[in-house]
Design a protein around this nucleic acid. Structure first.
Lengths: 338, 338
DNA sequence: AACGTTCGTGCGAACGTTCGCATTGATGAT
DNA sequence: ATCATCAATGCGAACGTTCGCACGAACGTT
């Protein structure tokens, strides 16, 4: 537990005032070369490190970025978090910032958590995750004029900085891939209507179908909670459709449903990829090791994390960034399932 | 962007000195009931929130816990991170702390990152992840007398606070389960000798075998890098053993290898669970949805995260905690693969 | 020789807290 | 009446920075 070495200690050692040391270290002033040298020597031998808290107190900045994410249920793990956090932490550190993770709260308390972090001066900005329509956090932060970047979009009429993955493009790629493989009756296993991300993605499916002159039957659109079980049920229904209507392929809005779909296809005695094609979305960790390996859409999570922080830093240091609404294209990973 | 409301503003509003406000809010002094009321009223109407940076500056504490984790390769995602982080963040907030994630560095730079966080006063303690034998961070922090808790153990001769999952117990459960199912020739798909966690876990396998009077053949112990591909290769070799030596089951030290193992079993035309049993370790997110669902060992990650923070907070506030070396039992999740 | 400029450095103040000690007026004991 | 005690509050200082301004010396210009 070494006694803290402060600016004053360095100043005494170098024979100047401590304020001068501060200015020299921050490059705010030019001093005589020998003085400069003495100061740097002192810093070196004493092992001086500026106290970050004191600096922040003076500057009235915390150099912290608040971030909170939804706690997923234990069996449906957030496999994106590692990459997203790591890339944000890296990018933030490079810009002199740190991340401040805080518990995700629901309802009324949620905005309260953001307000408190602002009012206690703990953060200079936020990255938002899991935004949906009418996100109260967005309204609150816009109103307060507090810097933030959302990972994901919200209502189209709201104008705010975001980074998002182009889900429509992802499903377009997936659907086009199936069409190219000769499929014409393609089903979509989707989320409920109140999911912005879901609506976004499914648009890509419709676009690709339309562009190929294919008209999806209403029965081909399955909407449910995004679970394995729902994927199974959806495919069971699809396979029970009468001969001429029965799809030969399905795109799912996430891998969990896709895996459920594969499971049911196999249970019905059909071969996945051969008799019935399945394409997922997310590139979940194990998808590549399934039997057969799952064709799926991979999101550029690292780049998204990097972009979020990059834009946010720009906002916090109020050099308004060139682009503050970024849409990143995902990538179709072709494997054996479809 | 409301103008910050400080102690002084509250004091003016309540007609007392700002120092008195501070003392009353911190409960350090008793004042006349009416004064007290005036102060609380002022706090309420002005919406006062203590500036955390200023407080920390004065107190000389940051109320931050440093944490960094290894960046896993993109295809082998850290599915534990979400639960571990969430539980730590929750527990920390309840105790008035926050987490400070920072990039994981390798080699010489690693300790440097820890040193800098200490010297700049940014953290009051650390939680370490991915510790192995002779972890330089442990030596450094012990020497500096800086509070930390490791998630995982290291050299037995080092005495430091840790929380760990009893890997030996996990593999003991897995192996006993297979024995109970009638298997006698049971293989182990393990990690290289330099992995402390690996050595720990494999002990449980040996203990269970010995307790059942079974002697593992050297050829049954496969050691490799923990990948899907290695799981495949290992099982290929095991199945190629001569009739009487060929195992009928295998325990793997992680789910990725277990899934590779299942893959090869199937490729050889055998049925997983029936002709050859496989048990994994980790309960990776998709394990339950495999075909067949994977029997595996689940670690109590949330509890580990909570415990880490609980012990660390005790250390930082130097009321030495009752127990500072905790071993948590994992749980065997029985499914159809073995 | 007197003057403005520039360079190198120091000084005081401030950021918003907490903390120890001083001060006041009232109360009770001698 | 005098003094110690105590409750209620105020005051000054400090934590380690950064920042604006001032000051003296050296220089070049008129």
């Amino acid at each position: 537990m070494s006694p803290k070495v402060t600016l004053k200690a360095v100043a005494v050692h170098a024979g100047v005032s401590y304020q001068t040391v501060s200015k020299v270290l921050n490059g705010q002033v030019s001093v005589a070369p020998e003085t400069r040298q003495r100061i740097f020597d002192a810093v070196q031998t004493l092992g001086y490190r500026p106290n970050h808290i004191a600096r922040n107190m003076r500057i009235k900045r915390s150099f912290m970025i608040g971030y909170s994410w939804v706690q997923t249920s234990p069996d449906q793990v957030n496999h994106i978090l590692d990459q997203f956090l790591t890339s944000m932490v890296r990018e933030a550190e490079a810009a002199g910032y740190h991340l401040l993770p805080f518990p995700f709260r629901e309802g009324q308390e949620q905005v309260e958590a953001y307000r408190e972090l602002i009012d206690t001066g703990r953060v200079d900005g936020f990255v938002l995750s899991s935004v949906n329509y009418n996100d109260p956090r967005i309204h609150f932060l816009l109103e307060r004029g507090f810097p933030f970047v959302a990972f994901g979009r919200s209502n189209p009429e709201l104008d705010f900085p975001y980074v998002d993955v182009d889900g429509a493009d992802g499903l377009r790629q997936a659907t086009e891939h199936l069409i190219q493989r000769g499929h014409t009756r393609i089903a979509a296993i989707a989320w409920p209507q109140n999911s912005r991300v879901g609506n976004e993605r499914i648009q890509g499916y419709f676009q690709a179908m339309q562009a190929a002159g294919l008209t999806p039957l209403p029965a081909w659109i399955e909407r449910g909670e995004g679970t394995f079980e729902f994927g199974r049920e959806a495919v069971a229904r699809l396979l029970d459709l009468p001969q001429g209507q029965r799809p030969t392929a399905a795109v799912a809005l996430n891998d969990t449903m896709a895996i459920g779909a594969m499971n049911m296809v196999r249970e019905r005695g059909l071969e996945v990829g051969h008799d019935f094609a399945v394409v997922g979305f997310d590139d979940a960790p194990m998808s590549q090791y399934l039997f057969p390996p799952l064709t799926t859409v991979r999101q550029p999570i690292r780049e998204a994390g990097r972009k979020c922080v990059e834009i946010l830093v720009g906002l916090m240091e109020d050099k308004t960034p060139a682009e503050n609404q970024v849409l990143l294209p995902p990538q179709l990973i072709k494997r054996a399932s479809g």
